[in-house]
């Protein structure tokens, strides 16, 4: 089967050619982009959250203030504001630091009216770099931004989970002669996950739904391609003319997102069961009785 002359095709053959056009291939690969973003962002956010929670509990006051400021400020700023301004500021900040380091002899100001200008060698990435480097860079900025936002929420969940571990557990650890550090890593951290999981699984679901914000960051995600492909196509500019098909594309996205959340729910349910095992919680107690 060849797709060189789509006008002569009908029915399934036409559809097969249509769905395998170069543009559709970009659409399919954008699903990979979204999954990759989720796969990288989730652990990075968790790490940010863990560090935030540790900082917020720290004995050293300035560190504690930093942790508390991080969780309360970032959680208070609307996501869209964060994604519009923070990313441009971050990008310009990186370029400014590179500019200071690489081009010390540059005399022109970096801000000229509305323009932000650094020396060509300090551009991140260099404007001579191939397009894929720019895309990877934008993707990394996106991961970092998502991780900061979701890390703040995760920090708050983890602080609560750390407080929820029964005080008696920590007292016992101290009675055994463990240091603060040992008690934290050996007693508190292994037990806190069961309390953190409901909050964290909520965050995961919200993260899944937040991925369309990617397009604000210049990363072409599934929603961008669905809108682009679904928009009506004129026979003068496309070999596959059609009317407004956005509803079908968005329905496909609906199915994708629902499937993803369903799979997550099942996975998280299993994880909850595993983590409740042997815990001094209602769920752990129920499992103990069922097993007995």
């Amino acid at each position: 089967m060849t797709c060189t002359d789509p006008e002569s095709l009908h029915g399934i053959a036409w559809l097969a050619c249509y769905l395998s056009s170069g543009k559709h291939m970009l659409f399919y690969s954008s699903f990979g982009t979204v999954l990759l973003l989720l796969a990288i962002t989730a652990p990075v956010s968790l790490a940010f959250g863990f560090m935030g929670a540790m900082a917020a509990r720290a004995g050293f006051a300035p560190l504690r203030w930093l942790g508390l400021a991080y969780t309360s400020v970032v959680r208070g700023v609307p996501d869209i504001v964060f994604f519009l301004f923070f990313v441009i500021a971050l990008d310009q900040g990186i370029e400014y630091l590179r500019h200071e380091a690489i081009c010390p002899g540059w005399t022109e100001p970096v801000r000229q009216g509305n323009d932000f200008i650094v020396c060509p060698e300090a551009k991140a990435p260099l404007s001579t770099a191939p397009q894929w480097v720019h895309e990877v860079y934008n993707f990394m900025l996106a991961v970092f931004t998502f991780a900061i936002v979701f890390g703040a929420f995760a920090a708050n969940v983890l602080i609560g989970a750390m407080r929820a571990v029964p005080r008696a557990q920590m007292e016992t650890a101290e009675a055994y002669g463990m240091s603060r550090r040992q008690a934290f890593w050996r007693i508190l951290v292994p037990q806190m996950w069961t309390y953190a999981l409901p909050g964290l699984s909520n965050l995961w679901m919200i993260l899944i739904k937040a991925t369309p914000l990617l397009f604000l960051l210049g990363v072409e995600d599934i929603v961008y391609w669905a809108r682009e492909l679904g928009g009506s196509k004129n026979p003068r500019f496309s070999s596959y003319p059609h009317g407004d098909w956005r509803i079908y594309y968005f329905l496909a996205l609906l199915v994708f997102y629902l499937a993803l959340t369903k799979v997550s729910e099942v996975g998280l349910g299993r994880l909850t069961r595993r983590l409740s095992h042997g815990q001094a919680t209602a769920a752990g107690e129920a499992m103990r009785k069922a097993g007995a």
Binding site: G22, K23, S127, T128, E228, N234, F237, S238, S239
Partner: peptide, 28 residues
């Protein structure tokens, strides 16, 4: 590298001025 690289920004959604063709490239 002497030939200056210029990045051309476009919308890709306004035929016939600019649009993405079936291969997903900027055209028009």
């Amino acid at each position: 590298s002497h030939a200056q690289t210029v990045r051309m920004g476009t919308e890709g959604a306004y035929p016939p001025y600019n649009f993405l063709n079936d291969a997903g490239e900027v055209d028009g």
